[in-house]
């Protein structure tokens, strides 16, 4: 494990904690896209099928359990918690997630390393994770005032993806590897989706004004 990978995982963990903090303590999910959260729950459920078949490390298993548990509980909170669900912007969060799920599944069925159930599911999760943030970005664009926690959540998620790219570059030069360009392309696409958000995030930070994305 290199420093970029660890920093990436910690940023990812921090993003989840920020979101849980907002939902659990403020009892609000305003500005949070349920569609994106459902997609993440599906991403982890399909990617971590190996949790029961392969053991990598205690760290790996614990982190997988955290990401599975947190993503499903966030979805549960937004859908069912008696107070939290009232703050959900249902009318704004209109992105149809099957428009992302179906193409990702088709792509995974045709473009993968091995045609096995686990491998296709793993590839599907990579493709889906790459685009899962889109409903959240669309929702942010529609939200006039983005609160600090929601802004930080998206920023941390973007930082996590960026750090993973540094991790791959580092591993490329230091470890034996075979080509897995699928991971590279999905990861780069995912990071690029945040470029626009990062630009406005830093602008608002520099000018000390509230974050707002242009429509």
């Amino acid at each position: 494990m290199n420093i970029f990978r660890l920093a990436g995982d910690m940023t990812h963990l921090a993003s989840v904690l920020v979101l849980l903090l907002k939902i659990h303590t403020i009892k609000s999910c305003a500005g949070v896209s349920l569609k994106t959260q459902e997609l993440y729950a599906l991403v982890f459920a399909t990617r971590y099928l190996d949790i029961v078949t392969d053991f990598i490390s205690v760290y790996n298993t614990v982190m997988k359990l955290i990401f599975l548990g947190s993503s499903f509980s966030i979805v549960w909170y937004i859908r069912h918690h008696r107070v939290v669900r009232r703050s959900y912007d249902k009318d704004q969060d209109t992105f149809r997630h099957y428009l992302l799920m179906i193409p990702c599944m088709l792509l995974a069925l045709f473009v993968h390393e091995k045609f096995t159930f686990k491998e296709v599911m793993w590839t599907f999760s990579l493709y889906l994770e790459a685009v899962a943030i889109l409903p959240q970005l669309v929702l942010l664009q529609r939200t006039r005032n983005i609160d600090n926690l929601t802004g930080q959540y998206v920023f941390l998620l973007g930082a996590y993806r960026g750090l993973y790219i540094f991790n791959w570059i580092y591993r490329y030069f230091t470890e034996p590897h075979f080509v897995h360009w699928i991971t590279w392309i999905a990861g780069v696409v995912q990071t690029l989706l945040y470029a626009d958000f990062f630009y406005y995030y830093f602008e608002s930070w520099k000018n000390n004004v509230r974050l707002q994305l242009p429509a």
Binding site: R5, D9, H12, D50, D54, I56, S57, N60, M63, K64, F67, W122, Y164, N167, R171, E175, P176, H177, F178, H180, T183
Partner: peptide
């Protein structure tokens, strides 16, 4: 064989 294939990542 201990090739890096990304499966040890999260």
């Amino acid at each position: 064989r201990n090739f890096y294939n990304g499966k040890d990542e999260l």
